[in-house]
Write a protein that binds this DNA or RNA. Structure first.
Length: 109
DNA sequence: AGCCTGACTCGGA
DNA sequence: CTCCGAGCCAGGC
């Protein structure tokens, strides 16, 4: 697998392709980026560049739950951004969930 | 160059 | 069904 910055670029490119009002999982983005097992790297990539021109808030874990707890990007902020796009956020036990069946994005476009 | 850590995931107990 | 552990890739120290 490539170990260049291109991986990041690909990740960003994939994330940018996520339509407004839709969400994708880390694993999915990683797969689209060319490395199915690099879900963690995706999160990392987003974390290093978060708050740029990439809709990082559209990326969630495989459960549709926001894993962020005490990071630079508060989950509340992510929830707000998603709600602005029409995505319904479900709050359960202090965690934020998104209905992937409804808002999940299909890579096959 | 080597070890630790992490916005993840999957599989077994 | 829930909890715990191992696997994975890349970056930081």
């Amino acid at each position: 697998m490539p170990t260049e910055d291109n991986f990041y670029l690909r990740v960003f490119a994939v994330v940018r392709r996520i339509p407004r009002g839709k969400v994708a999982t880390y694993g999915q983005v990683a797969a689209l980026a060319g490395t199915p097992r690099a879900a963690r790297i995706v999160g990392w990539a987003l974390r290093t560049q978060a708050k740029k021109d990439v809709p990082w808030h559209r990326v969630l874990n495989t459960s549709g739950m926001i894993s962020i707890e005490n990071m630079n990007a508060p989950k509340e902020e992510q929830a707000r951004l998603l709600e602005l796009e029409g995505v319904v956020i479900e709050r359960k036990a202090g965690n934020l969930f998104v209905d992937l069946k409804k808002y999940g994005w299909s890579a096959i476009v």
